[in-house]
Each structure stands twice: as C-alpha cells, then as structure tokens.
Design a protein around this nucleic acid. Structure first.
Lengths: 339, 339
DNA sequence: ATTGGCACTCACGGCCTCGGAGTGCCAACT
DNA sequence: AGTTGGCACTCCGAGGCCGTGAGTGCCAAT
C-alpha cells in the first residue's frame, strides 16, 4: 500500500517535471494527479523518497526534482511503453518507403527519429554494405603463424595475425590464398559471409580446421565495424532548453561532435534485444552527465547491423523516446529486409 | 586623408568588436589603437560612418557596432590576409598526411577547419568519386526525343530527356546504346569524362552531332552533384557565444541540420577562384541572418571538386577565417592530388 | 497512518537608485 | 575646414531592497 503510493508519487513527480521543467511541490501534485490523499501525506512520502535518493530539492523550500536514480526507478518499474498512434505509424511508413538507397535511408531515419522524439538523434551505420574487397593476401610469418592483409576498395588496409593449431604447408597456403582471392576479391563486404559459407568444404578434411580459422578471421574483419559512420540529426533540439539545461549545451555538442564518443554511446548496448536507457552519469562520458541516452538496435536479415538512438536531457519523455526508438528500429529493419 | 582615417576607424571598430563583442566607444578606440586624434574627432567620423550605414548603435548612448554593410566594407577593403604561422602549416601537414582514405580526409578536414577557425566547419564532398554507373538506357520517346536513364550503383536513378536536332534512326539508337553501355557501365563516375573523351569520334561524321549531345547530357548527369554529402563539425563552437549571440542558436542549428541548406551555402560560390565571404543577410537563408559564411573551393587535378567553409557569427575573425579556409582548401587539393 | 495547522525559509520579480560610459553639439583653436 | 575640449544629456545595467508566495518540516489531533 505505502510502497505503491510512493511509486505513484515518484511517477507523478517525474511526469510533472518532464512536462514543466520546474520543481514540483506537494500541493500541485495532489491537484494535478488524483492521488486520494492530502498534501501532507505526500510530503511524508516525498521526504522518504528523498532519503532513499530518488528525488532532491534544488534548495530548501523548493519543490522536488527527480535524481538520476529516480529516473532509473521510473524507467525500470513504471514505464509502460505507449505505442505510436496509427497516424504516426503511417507517416513513418510513407516517409521511409520513399528512401532511395542506403544513404538515404540513414538520413531519413535520423530525421524521423529526431522529429518523433524532439531530441538529438543518431544512427550508426556500417558502411560495410558499401565497401568491397579489393585484394586479400596471406603471408607466412612462421610455420604456425599467418598474417592476413585485407585491402578494402576505399584504400584502407586491415591486418590480422592468425595463430594456427598445426604447421601449414607452403602448398596449402598458396592454394588457400589463390582460392580466397578468386572467391572474395571484388565482392562487397555484405556478400562475403554468403560467398564464404561453404568455402571450407572444398578443402581436404584435414585442412578444414585451418581454413575455417582463416575464414573466421576474415569474416570477423569484414563484419567488424571497420568503416563505420554515424549520422547525427536534430542537434537544434538541444538549444530548446536554453538556460534550463543544466550548464551549457557546449560540452554536449562537443561530445556529439566526436565520432568516437558517439560510437561508444551506440556501442554500449545491453545484450538484451530491447531498448537500452542510460541516465545521466550512467553514461561514462563526462560531458553527458546531464543527458540520457536511449538506444536500440536494428538489423538486416537476422544479423544485427547497428544501433540507433536519441540523446536528450535527463528530464526527457522516456516513454515516448523508448517507443520511438523501438518503432524506428523495427521499421529500418523492415526496410532493409525489403531491399 | 579624411576617408583614410574613416576606414581606419571602421577597421578599429570591427577589430575591437570582434575581440570583445561589446559596443565600442570613441574613447576606448583612441586608447587601444594609436590613431593620432582626439575622441571628439573620432565621434565625428563615427557619426559619418553611421550616416553611411556602416555602423550602428544598439541604443542611444552606447558604443557603435558594425553593420553587415560595415563588415562587407571591412572585408572588401581592409583585410590583408594573414598567412598561417609555419607551425600551423606543419601541424596541418602532419594531420592531413596521416589520412587513410577519402572519408578520412573529409573528416579530418572538417575537424581541422573547425579547430583553426574556432567555428563551425563544413566540407562538401562529392561522392561522385565513389559512385559508379550500373547501367544506362536510351529510350526513344519520339523521332527527335530521347530519354536517357542512368542507374547508379547506389540504386539511384537519374532521368534526362534529350531533344535532338534531327530524327534518329532506330539503328543508330541501338548502336549508340550498345556502345555506351559497354563503354561506361561499371565505371566510376570519376572516370566517365575520361572514358568518353573520344567516344563520339568513332561514329560516322553525320551522327556525331547527336552522339555529342547524348554524351554531353550524360557527362552533365555524372558531373552534377547527384549524391553529394556534407560533413559538419565543430557545432559546439556555436554554443560559445552563449547569450551574446543575437537571438538563440537554435535556428542556426536547425539550418545546419538541413543538407539542402548546407548545399546552398557551399554552392553559391563566386565564380572567382578565391574565397567567398557572405555576411549576415547576404546569405539568403533567413535563419543565418546573424551569421557569416566563408567558403572556398578545392579540387583534384585541375577540375574543381567541391567546396568547404566555415559558418560563424557576423562578428567573426574574417582575416583568420579567410586564410584558414584558403590554406585548408589548398592542402586538401594537394592531398587529393597525391593520392 | 493520515491530516490540518502553523511557523519558517528562500527564490523571484518588481522597483528604485546611482554610477559611468557614451553621445551630440557648440564654441574655440589651428 | 578640420580638429579639439567642454558640457549637458541619455540611458543601460548592476546592486540593493522589499513583498509575495510556494513550499517545507514538524506537531498535535484524528
């Protein structure tokens, strides 16, 4: 009973604060939400919530504001994702379906996400699909060590050292090299996994272990985010919070300017398939202490391709952001599959 | 004599205002710059400059602030571009030389430019170089009208209608189509002009007019900015101007979020080879009324490839921005040529 | 456990004052 | 004519001073 109401109070505080961006007091709370109790009772609950670290007051005799911990609890326990309206879904569909190519899809996606959430949106976007193999080389370093050199048509060069269980004969190496070259060179990264699917089978059984290792290494190199890109959109939404934003938006913009940071934000996704929310200092990027990041993953076929998400102030509409990220990720996945 | 001093005064005002972002008065002016006259004289000059529309006062009994027109005059007449220090040049060289591929060059360029100017930098970057022709089709619409359909390997489709001076025989059309396909399909855009250089010559003299038209149309389509991209960097610098920035930075960010706007900014470059400066409302983008744009062009070989530039408040360091844009454009050109 | 009452706190907005920087004008000087 | 010093005037902005009101914590009563 008591605990239930406390949660309700927390939810109400978050809701109000998100809506108004102003500390919320006990009286306003009972008026706006129909909790069937008096302000005094709420005050007690608030004191308890403050003790537990979920809310805080900017100064004595001001209303309460949720802490990062408060948002965390709110997100974990209270949010029921509100599905998008059917009108929204239709709009998304139309907007996305008119995309021309991969670049266009990404640009549209980021626009869409920024629009839906009214936040800064980011879409990670493996250029895998556009790179292709120019050449591949296998060099023997010692009897059990190989170096694989992969030359991408963008001019980039990737090197890997491969440790083999058993010594490799020069002949096998030459054979493997030749067949590998003829199989993958000129092929776009995206098709390499397919092309190599049955590659090992054509070798003698005793060599398949080694071939498998080499193939696996190559696949790893190709699948890895070699040449990733992140598109950013809706940065203007940051400016909306004027002075209300804790501190200036400058550090945030600086952070978002760094590809590396964006990658990290988008990379640190929970293994679970759903949407991840990182609140305030849960982001280990210092400049983003006052922001929350909502990320999701999208895929093509049945392999995960990359992530997308939004960045906004901690006092954001989590329910909306989560459902938008989820929905957009789904649509992108669908569009990619259709292509 | 008089006019000379007035220009000196204007320059001093711009210098001071750029440095301090505060309206500059007559007394401060004579103190900081050693104009050999008294404040009263300066006041007279200021009054004249104000009459002519070069400066203005935010309110009575405040110092003067340059108008857009004032900046224009300043840029046109007074700026002597200060060359970069040799240390700067070396740093640029090192930074740029370690670029891996085209993408990397662009990312580095935009970073560099933002760093040097402490402004928002943008680099236009024709993906021409990366697109290639998948297929080309010629369809007869009437005896003198053709439709050319160009399919790019990114999946994009370009259509052009070609009006011919004389009727075209089916046979010529079929021949042209076949030879065009075999000549350009699979070729990267960048090589198409070269590949088609002597294409028309292999046709019968009486057909060369038509073939020339078709080739010209194709070249146009290929050379045109079909699939251009713009990278943006240093947006954080906008936030530096806090409230000092006329109005909020939101509209500016919004504008910069739009590829289309960026294209326009970078596209409207004076035909002259040098650096173009557009000040305040000289940009016909409304949101950028309070900003100036400095753009330059870079090239690969001897054909102009694309533009780069910076966007900042009208009270920016024009001399620095101009020289930085110029220098970076030169370096990019050099790097591209070396590749 | 909940509630009404009460005294206390403190940010915020309005109001006023005052200093100072800057101006325009005018008369005097070169 | 151009330059200069003097002078009265304007007006922004910082600082100080309330009064108000929302909000709190505590306590006694239900």
């Amino acid at each position: 009973m008591v605990d239930d109401r406390r949660l309700a109070v927390l939810r109400a505080i978050v809701d109000d604060y998100v809506a108004t961006h102003e500390p919320v007091g006990s009286k306003a709370l009972v008026e706006r939400h129909n909790l069937g109790v008096s302000p005094a009772t709420i005050r007690n609950d608030m004191a308890a919530l403050e003790d537990e670290g979920f809310i805080t007051q900017p100064h004595t005799s001001a209303g309460r504001v949720p802490t990062d911990l408060g948002y965390r609890l709110f997100v974990d326990r209270l949010t029921q994702v509100k599905p998008l309206s059917s009108a929204e879904r239709r709009a998304i569909q139309v907007f996305m379906e008119s995309a021309v190519d991969l670049d266009d899809i990404m640009v549209r996606t980021v626009k869409l996400l920024a629009q839906l959430t009214q936040q800064v949106a980011m879409v990670q976007y493996p250029s895998l699909a556009r790179s292709s193999v120019r050449h591949i080389e296998l060099i023997s370093l010692s009897s059990t060590r190989l170096m694989m050199v992969l030359i991408v048509d963008t001019g980039r060069v990737e090197q890997r050292v491969i440790e083999c269980a058993a010594p490799i004969s020069d002949q096998l190496l030459a054979d493997l090299r030749a067949r590998l070259i003829s199989t993958v060179s000129g092929k776009p990264f995206s098709s390499v996994p397919e092309v190599l699917a049955r590659f090992a089978e054509s070798f003698a059984p005793e060599d398949q272990g080694l071939v498998g290792t080499v193939v696996a290494t190559l696949l790893e190199a190709v699948t890895e985010r070699i040449d990733e890109r992140v598109v950013l959109g809706g940065t203007a939404h940051l400016a909306r919070y004027g002075e209300a934003f804790p501190l200036s938006i400058q550090p945030v913009l600086e952070a978002l300017d760094e590809q590396v940071v964006l990658m990290r934000l988008l990379g640190e996704v929970s293994s679970a398939g759903g949407v991840t929310v990182r609140i305030g200092h849960e982001n280990d990027v210092e400049a983003l202490e006052a922001t929350s990041v909502v990320t999701g993953r999208y895929s093509r076929g049945d392999q995960t391709v990359a992530s997308l998400g939004v960045v906004g102030p901690t006092h954001m509409d989590y329910a909306g952001a989560i459902s938008a990220v989820q929905a957009v990720a789904q649509y992108v996945t669908r569009i990619l599959d259709e292509q």
